[in-house]
Write a protein that binds this DNA or RNA. Structure first.
Lengths: 225, 225
DNA sequence: TTGCATAATTTTGCATACAAAATATATTTT
DNA sequence: AAAATATATTTTGTATGCAAAATTATGCAA
């Protein structure tokens, strides 16, 4: 498994072989955390100066971010942070519902005992963090749990899709949709199924977990309108 | 819907606003069509000269291709064409089985009458092409049919994932797994379900279509070993 | 020969330079 | 003053230049 950095505190630890990769991660973080607002224009000179680099590695970073749907590239008119509307958020959720159950089944089938031990450990920590009442920490733990499942699925393309489209993060953009307590209980079923190598059950419980979240998202947006 | 160019004859028609996009498409085509072999080193100077451009737009193109898993980027050691092994091919198929049924359901639900008419027209042409006994043409028609379904699904992130990971193309890398006749019949069921706005049926028949192909792929690789 | 150290060459990553396009500002015209 | 035109500034896309790293070639001892 190869977890990608999302939170700035984690990013400090990572050594980058090339600048464009580093810049790509920095921009990605800034966009996902809202430091760069949707619609905002990404001026090359300004950003290059801010980040202490030239405009060349920015081009590569922009290209990567465009593929992830985080930025919009308008030829000769620059790059903007892409805004995801409610429909696209729901679209992503429906994709997530298709992909993460496949990942959970994959871990149950292909994960090593060590992989599964790691997931169980993360799950235990999730309980502690949930009790701490720190929403940001809970969200981070949730993000890492789901990404670990994808990472240990033994299906690399699947992991690449889930991580590079920021599916887990974006789906939880407006905060987690249920209590840490309930999430923990639902995760428990998934983890138990994985630990007992029951791929069908892991798939089922992951799907239930996500379907429940999507339905909450749907009723939330209905209320808001 | 916004179809991406894959076959060289289609690419001539497209006007590109910037070189890196053009180069990206050219390289993508060269890799998918096997002109650039897996494992092959992509030397910047050589390629830039061949394509008549400088090395700068190549960097952006490489970055995009790396995200699609078509190119491997080794820092300070250049880029190579990425080789997909049998396992990853199967992994992609399993992803495809999750995503394309969602797309088919999407068309049935959200496609305009015009979208659906387009798909029906493509399907009719598929029959003609199938009778012509030109495997390359059949494969192209199949590719375009499946990509059209994704494109008319009304789920843009879904289309972006399917197209940018070259899922349809790569899954059929070793040629189509069944006769044009059988494909046509299976497509017919999907098209009928879409035309009658039956999302559940469209989803079901697309899944059956792909599951059958995957099982053929599995028994083929078993035979080969 | 083979193995290893050293030198020459190539290749990469990044910064910079420059022309063309886009945007902003100033000027004129109605 | 508002609209239209002209001018100046900024910004972008791409080519080029340069230093550092990697690769290949060469020389030399065992």
């Amino acid at each position: 498994m190869f977890a990608i950095a999302l939170y700035s505190e984690d990013m400090q630890k990572i050594e980058y072989a090339d600048l464009s990769e580093k810049v790509y991660n920095e921009l990605r973080l800034m966009i996902l955390e809202g430091e760069l607002q949707p619609g905002e224009k990404l001026k090359q000179n300004l950003l290059a100066n801010q980040l202490g680099i030239s405009r060349t590695p920015l081009a590569a970073a922009f290209s990567k971010l465009e593929k992830e749907m985080l930025v919009e590239l308008l030829p000769r008119r620059g790059a903007r942070v892409r805004a995801l509307n409610a429909q696209e958020l729901l679209d992503l959720y429906n994709i997530r519902i298709q992909l993460e159950p496949l990942a959970a089944a994959g871990v149950a089938r292909n994960g090593t005992d060590e992989d599964i031990a790691t997931i169980m450990k993360m799950h235990t920590e999730y309980k502690t963090i949930g009790d701490s009442n720190d929403p940001r920490a809970v969200r981070k733990a949730d993000y890492e749990f789901h990404l670990a499942v994808a990472g240990f699925s033994g299906n690399e393309p699947l992991y690449r899709i889930i991580s590079s489209f920021n599916i887990v993060f974006i789906c939880n953009q407006g905060g987690l949709l249920k209590s840490a307590q309930q999430s923990y209980e639902e995760h428990s079923k998934i983890v138990d199924a994985i630990a007992s190598r029951n791929a069908a059950a892991a798939e089922f419980f992951m799907r239930s977990h996500l379907l429940d979240s999507r339905d909450r998202l749907l009723s939330d947006t209905k209320e808001a309108s």
